[in-house]
Computed example of a mutant assay.
Amino acid sequence: MIATHPAHLLLIALLSGALPAMADDLSHGKALFSACSSCHGEQAQGSPALAAPVLAGQQQSYLIRQLGNFKSGLRGSNPGDSAGAQMQAMAATLSDEQAIADLSAYLASLPPPASKPSLSGNAALGSRLYQAKCGACHGGQAEGNLAMHSPRLRQQFDSYLLLQVNHFKQGIRGSAPGDRYGKQMKMMAATVNDQELLDVLAHISNLPQP
């Protein structure tokens, strides 16, 4: 029997993908987030004035996908998306997939802040519209759905959600080739008019906030 050198075993493992993935490093993610806090807040609570969304408590997989989309240019390249262009520049500073995973894991670990409605809408009508059009993907309580790759909407600024849905409607977001999930949202955004959208957002803003 021929003995195998440990270095050869390591090479075989690398080539076969048999080595376990690196664990997410929350402390590294926190350090990386320091470059983001001027817009997104010290606790990732976001800023309506800067159109910077709440990131605390968002699903890690969704954050990884969006940061990857900004880094690759899949999101933020439309001339009408000035905030997206800023995010492209920030995402470019993340050195590799592990850095994105660490940052996303840190943000997902933070408790989402309480939110207050800033827009006027009929929450009762919005509840029916939400369940009919949004709930199957985003969850009955807007908590997000990992299986459907749909983000958490609860405790997000209604003004930010309004902006993003309008960006989908206008083709500013969700029109890039290869943006599979963006295209799905672009189609769904077209199914509500302006007042219906305000009603849906009123419903989301009035959901219980654990």
Rank of each mutant, 00 (worst) to 15 (best):
H5Q: 08
A101E: 02
Q86I: 08
Q86A: 07
S115N: 11
Q164H: 07
M1G: 02
A114S: 10
I100N: 09
D102S: 12
P210I: 08
H138P: 12
S34F: 03
A202K: 03
L14P: 06
L153Q: 04
I100H: 11
Q86E: 10
L67E: 03
A83M: 15
P6K: 05
P53S: 09
S95G: 11
L50A: 06
L207G: 08
A132M: 15
Q86T: 06
M87L: 01
V192T: 12
A108K: 08
Q164E: 04
A51H: 07
G178R: 13
A176V: 11
H203T: 04
K133R: 15
H149G: 05
L14N: 15
G57I: 04
Q141R: 15
S159I: 14
L15S: 07
G121Q: 08
K133M: 14
S104R: 07
K186S: 09
N78E: 12
Q164R: 09
A13W: 09
P111W: 05
I2V: 08
A7L: 06
M188C: 05
L32Q: 02
Q131Y: 14
L162G: 00
K71Q: 08
L50H: 04
K116A: 07
I12E: 15
G126A: 09
G126V: 06
P117S: 11
A85H: 13
H138G: 12
L14K: 15
G57S: 04
F157C: 05
P79Y: 10
I172C: 00
L26D: 05
E97S: 11
G84N: 08
M188V: 08
A92H: 08
D194C: 02
P208H: 11
K116D: 02
L197Q: 04
F168I: 03
T4R: 12
P79I: 11
G144L: 04
C36Y: 09
H40K: 03
K186T: 03
R128F: 11
C137H: 13
S61F: 04
L161G: 00
L63C: 07
A189W: 13
Q58H: 09
G140I: 05
D179Q: 13
A18Y: 07
G182W: 15
L55S: 06
Y106P: 01
A49D: 02
S109W: 12
A123I: 01
G182K: 09
Q155T: 01
L11A: 14
A190V: 02
V165I: 06
Q209S: 02
Q88H: 01
M1S: 05
Q156S: 04
P151G: 11
C36Q: 08
Q195F: 06
Q141G: 11
C36H: 10
A123P: 12
P6Q: 08
A99N: 09
H40V: 00
K116V: 02
L198A: 13
R154M: 08
D102Q: 10
E42M: 10
Q66W: 03
G174P: 14
Q98H: 13
G29Q: 13
R128G: 02
R154P: 00
R152T: 07
D194E: 14
S175A: 08
H5K: 10
F157A: 07
S109H: 13
Q66G: 00
L207K: 06
Q155E: 03
D81Q: 10
Y62E: 09
E42H: 13
G76F: 05
G182A: 03
S16N: 10
Q209K: 05
K169C: 00
